[in-house]
């Protein structure tokens, strides 16, 4: 019985993440269009795109690793989703939580892009290879302030679980974005790179690299990547809300909080042109790194 509840809970969480992530993607397209003074596609356009991609035939075969690449992405997104609590106090299904899951999460979030890098490498497309090198360089850039922010939180509150950090916020009544502000700033600056909107869309730059690592993938491969990307963006937003904004008591509050924090990379991205790779890395190793170090000092001293 317990196992059955767990499995059903996992499936419900995946469906929630898929629907919310896809809708957010559509709303972002609409917002982008409004900023460009266009009418824009309807908010459910991403669902139509996904359904159409799923209905396409896929007669591409470059080897098994290419097929495994999107699967790696999907598995990584779903497993990451299982570790992030959706609501406070077990309000949603508690899927998988254990001591030290924040450290495990740091490793897990890199797993999908690495698998995708292997898959893209096998397609033999030069655009994919350039996209992979750019993506991994950018990841080296934004992972450092991100890890520093999380380590600062772990030092400050003596816990390595996400639920532990959520309990701290429940108990004290203040969000962590106020009680450890430097970690929040570092994490938000790292988030700009994590979501890969402009100016950090150097990986899949459509006109420059022909969409980079995914350039040889069409049809069902693209559907898998699109849906795993949607799930992963929901995971990241929920993680930010859990860590810095005091979690959420019900789904409506979760949606409001995740959407408002999602607007930071989106709105910054709409009005920005694209960085070159070295500019992006220089950005992340500048102020975000400074705030990361400040966060650790703040956590260690106070």
């Amino acid at each position: 019985m317990d196992l059955l509840t767990n499995i059903l809970g996992a499936i419900a969480t995946i469906i929630l993440a898929f629907v919310v992530g896809m809708s957010y993607g559509g709303i972002v397209r609409k917002i982008t269009a409004r900023v460009h003074n266009r009418l824009g596609p309807p908010w459910y356009q991403n669902f139509i795109d996904a359904y159409k991609l799923f209905g396409k035939t896929t007669a591409i075969h470059h080897g098994w690793m290419q097929i495994m690449g999107p699967a790696f992405l999907m598995v990584s997104s779903v497993v990451t989703l299982m570790f992030v609590p959706v609501l406070n106090n077990g309000g949603w299904f508690t899927n998988l939580n254990f001591k030290g899951d924040l450290i495990f999460l740091l490793y897990l979030m890199v797993f999908g892009p690495l698998g995708m890098a292997l898959g893209a490498g096998q397609t033999g497309n030069p655009n994919s290879a350039i996209g992979v090198t750019r993506g991994l360089s950018q990841m080296v850039g934004f992972e450092i302030p991100w890890v520093m922010a999380l380590v600062a939180l772990m030092i400050q509150f003596n816990t390595t679980t996400i639920t532990g950090l959520m309990d701290v916020q429940q108990m004290s009544g203040t969000w962590l974005m106020f009680s450890s502000p430097f970690a929040f700033i570092a994490a938000v600056l790292a988030m700009l790179g994590m979501f890969r909107y402009s100016p950090f869309d150097i990986v899949g730059a459509p006109t420059e690299l022909a969409s980079g690592p995914v350039s040889e993938n069409g049809g069902k491969f693209l559907f898998t990547m699109m849906s795993s990307g949607s799930i992963f963006s929901f995971v990241k937003l929920t993680l930010y809300v859990d860590l810095f904004m005091g979690g959420a008591d019900n789904l409506i509050i979760l949606l409001i909080k995740t959407f408002s924090i999602y607007m930071i990379p989106v709105l910054y991205g709409i009005v920005s042109p694209r960085y070159r790779t070295e500019q992006a890395i220089r950005f992340f190793w500048g102020w975000p790194l400074f705030f990361g170090i400040l966060a650790i000092l703040y956590a260690a001293i106070f």
Binding site: R29, G40, P41, N127, L209, A210, S211, N217
Partner: peptide, 22 residues
């Protein structure tokens, strides 16, 4: 594609490679 005629409202958007295009 851009703001005056805005083909994206009809679901028309650019694809980067032939693999993804319809």
């Amino acid at each position: 594609m851009t703001s005056r005629y805005d083909a994206e409202r009809l679901g028309v958007r650019g694809a980067a490679t032939p693999r993804q295009a319809d």
